[in-house]
């Protein structure tokens, strides 16, 4: 067949460089942000900026070189976190950040692999991957930003939307209960489980730094305002007012039983580090059990 296409517009390196020179250096954390990627796409009042900043603060505090950090995201507003960080970042398919990160973390135990994604991505379409990642105890740090709805697509109900909450697909109120994420992560085998809100940035930074020292599957839920998708229909006000609401409703109880951490509409939000235990991760068991046997290192016997 004959093919007719438009001319391809070649990549303009000079203007890209110029945009970077003009725009870079304005933000205090610029050295951690990919050149030329700011301004971000998030709404005013969105909680995602706080979560991004706490992650950067945590690597800074731990002194981990960015070359040793990798972020993997799924799809959605939180999925865009990967694209802003100046490190190796992978923006994958909807719900599949954990299995992608599993492959990466298993072949590169020298890297700190963090999965950043939203509640819909990690617990609806990706729910199966999360529970299996936790069960296997893959060495991954999962940060789940929970804003009780699908923000990117305009505020639909998701796996964490509480009963009776309004979203664009539950205009009369939600008929389903939401998941209790810390309880699910704990029951699936995560070695570290915490929940904070964006009103708790200091505690959140501390939690993230703790997960960098843990081997195995760690899980942090961050409750974040989404004034656009969730705040408005549920009359939680602006981003700031939603944050104030989380401040009033949250109750910090470190070591609390995650089964008690269920969130109801207008109910208390239990926060804290709930679980912090040790358990051999996948690679440790694989190396000591499987590889050792296959290579005849155990009892000098060949498999």
């Amino acid at each position: 067949m004959k093919r007719h296409f438009r001319d391809i517009v070649p990549f303009d390196q000079d203007s890209a460089d110029r945009a970077i020179e003009e725009g870079h250096g304005l933000h205090p954390l610029d050295e951690y942000l990919k050149p030329g990627r700011i301004p971000h796409i998030w709404c005013p009042g969105c909680g995602l900026g706080v979560v991004l900043t706490t992650y950067i603060e945590a690597i800074r505090r731990k002194g981990i070189p960015v070359d040793k950090c990798v972020v993997v995201s799924g799809i959605g507003c939180t999925g865009r976190v990967a694209g802003y960080l100046d490190m190796d970042t992978y923006h994958t398919t909807h719900g599949r950040a954990i299995p992608f990160a599993t492959g990466l973390a298993l072949v590169r135990p020298d890297l700190h692999v963090t999965v950043f994604s939203g509640d819909g991505d990690l617990f609806a379409i990706g729910g199966n991957h999360l529970i299996h990642g936790a069960r296997r105890n893959i060495n991954l740090n999962v940060i789940c930003v929970n804003n009780f709805n699908y923000g990117m697509t305009g505020g639909q109900a998701g796996p964490t939307t509480p009963v009776d909450a309004r979203t664009s697909t539950t205009p009369m109120g939600n008929a389903e209960p939401g998941f209790n994420l810390p309880h699910l992560a704990h029951a699936s085998g995560a070695v570290y489980v915490a929940r904070w809100t964006t009103f708790h940035p200091r505690q959140l930074v501390h939690s993230i730094t703790e997960t960098f020292d843990k081997k195995g599957f760690t899980f942090i839920e961050v409750i974040a305002p989404c004034p656009t998708g969730y705040g408005r229909p549920n009359k939680l006000g602006s981003g700031l007012e939603e944050m104030r609401y989380y401040k009033e409703m949250s109750e910090v109880r470190n070591g609390a039983d995650p089964s008690k951490a269920e969130i109801r509409l207008k109910g208390k939000i239990l926060c804290g580090t709930f679980i912090n235990v040790e358990r051999p991760d996948f690679l440790e068991t694989y190396n000591n059990l499987v590889i050792a046997k296959a290579q005849g290192r155990d009892k000098g016997k060949a498999a």
Binding site: V72, D88, Y90, T92, T93, R96, P99, F100, A101, T102, G103, L104, A105, L106, V107, H129
Partner: peptide, 8 residues
Amino acid sequence: AAILGASW
């Protein structure tokens, strides 16, 4: 997904 991650 895992083999893509391993490849990277």
